[in-house]
Simulated assay, not measured.
Amino acid sequence: MKILLTTHHLKDFAGSELNTYDLALQLRAMGHKLTIATFQYQDPIRSLFEKEKLDVVNLLEKKLSNKKYDLIWAQHFIVLNYVLFVEGVSAPKVVYRSLSNYEPLEYPPSYTKELSLCLAISKENKDFLLKEGFEKSKIVIFPNSVREEFFTNKQKANKEKITSIMIASNHIPTELLKAVNLLRKKRIKVDIYGLGHKFEHITPSLLGKYDVVVSIGRTVQYALAMGKPIFCYDRFGGPGYITNKNFEAAEKYNFSGRGFDRIMDHSEITSEIINNYSKAIKYSKGLKDVCQDKFSLQRNASQIFNRLEKSGSNVDLLAIKKQLTGIHKITEIYASELRRSIERDKYIQKKEQDISEFKVRIKRQEKAIKDQSKIINQLKERIASTIEGRIINLKRKVFN
């Protein structure tokens, strides 16, 4: 199948970007031909897509060369609006995926009932969509899912005592940062990955270096797939180690930490990570099998394709366009304003870089002046010492 994936931006090692990356690799492995449409395409995550030679089109810079696909798999409604109503793309099947209840861009489009399917990332997300009036028969839970390399990656046996911890977060809370200091005082290595810290793609080999992972969201599924103890905690708090007892409740809220109303202080976090580690090891072994059943990307994607194949009916894009007259203009305005915003940010960034470089040059010049002044002062001292020595010698000659 020829498939068009849409996402608002591809910039950072963050949720929606990594969802797109993993899905693209999985669909390609299943034999499909892919194009990815986005409004922003830049490093650091751009390097991952380029390394895999994935076809990515920045819609703010050029148009899609192909207008006909077998399937559009979309996230972020504004990009779907753009490819349908501005670019004029068509496909018999259209799937929309909502990644959360809280980000406006991830809210489903008004014409969702006309689409093939609407994928909810969690039960919480599905319940929200049902309350919003979206058609129940169209909504399918499609959780953060894991590529096979996480399940098959060979790991060393879990250690009896914690020696190293990975924290993966783009929004690490204060109490967790304070806990890091306590853990390090206990001679436990703690590395933080995310915005403002080590910023790199989390892979099975990277996860395999640590005894414990502290994170929320998709990284929880990564750790579960590898049979690694995962401490679920971040800006919304969380349950702590994922166990058989709290798994279902944590899964309902996409392992975000929500749903438990539990904020710990730094000493509680430290104590739980250390004291409950041995129990977490026992739970992690069984949860790996549960994860394989629930979060295999290959399995979950195949189920969606099977469902699409059985549905038979195609999306009537012409009917949708007739219902939504003027939407193309609104979408064009959004894209135009976003383009201006991006250019403005680039301009500001360039000026800030120029100012930073200018400050560096000034510091270098100041250092050069200080060095020259030091040399001049040293020369003055030598000259003064030489003159003084000669005067003393002359006096000696005169008086002798």
Rank of each mutant, 00 (worst) to 15 (best):
K209G: 07
D289H: 08
R187Q: 11
I333T: 12
I188F: 05
I167H: 10
K136T: 13
V398Y: 14
E175V: 00
T38K: 00
A91I: 01
D261A: 11
D293E: 11
G312W: 04
F295K: 00
I36S: 01
I45G: 02
A157Q: 12
N153P: 13
D371V: 10
T112P: 10
Y241A: 08
K228C: 08
E357P: 00
E160I: 10
A249E: 14
S385D: 05
Y107N: 11
K321A: 15
K68S: 07
K198E: 11
S164V: 09
K359G: 04
F305E: 01
S47Y: 05
A29S: 13
K11H: 15
A368Q: 09
S311L: 05
K123H: 13
E160T: 14
Y347I: 15
E337A: 11
F77Q: 07
V212L: 04
T112S: 14
I333L: 07
I274W: 10
T6N: 03
Q372E: 03
R46S: 04
E50C: 06
I162W: 09
L338R: 07
K198C: 07
E114W: 11
Q40W: 06
L84S: 03
Y210C: 13
A384V: 10
I327H: 15
I202A: 00
Q323P: 01
A24W: 13
M166A: 08
N300I: 10
G208D: 12
R187D: 14
H197T: 10
G389T: 04
F236P: 03
S284Q: 06
Y253V: 10
F260P: 04
K11D: 15
K138L: 02
K33V: 02
V290S: 01
E337S: 08
Y21K: 02
K161S: 15
L99R: 00
S169N: 11
S16T: 12
Q323W: 01
F85S: 03
V95A: 08
I45L: 04
V180M: 04
K209Y: 13
V56P: 09
K294D: 01
E61K: 14
N246I: 08
G133P: 00
N158C: 13
E103D: 08
K62Q: 14
A91Q: 02
Y69K: 01
V220M: 05
D12A: 15
C291W: 07
I342G: 01
L34W: 11
R364E: 09
G194V: 09
V213S: 04
I327N: 15
I78K: 09
T35E: 08
T152L: 12
F199Y: 14
I188C: 04
E272D: 06
R262S: 11
D234L: 02
S137W: 01
K288Y: 15
T203Y: 15
E132A: 05
K93W: 03
E106D: 14
E103W: 15
M166S: 03
L130D: 05
S116N: 09
C291T: 06
N66W: 05
S256Y: 02
N66K: 07
R344I: 13
Y253R: 06
L48E: 07
A29H: 07
G194K: 09
V398M: 10
T163W: 03
S256T: 02
N101C: 14
L54N: 09
K131R: 04
E200N: 12
S311A: 02
P44G: 03
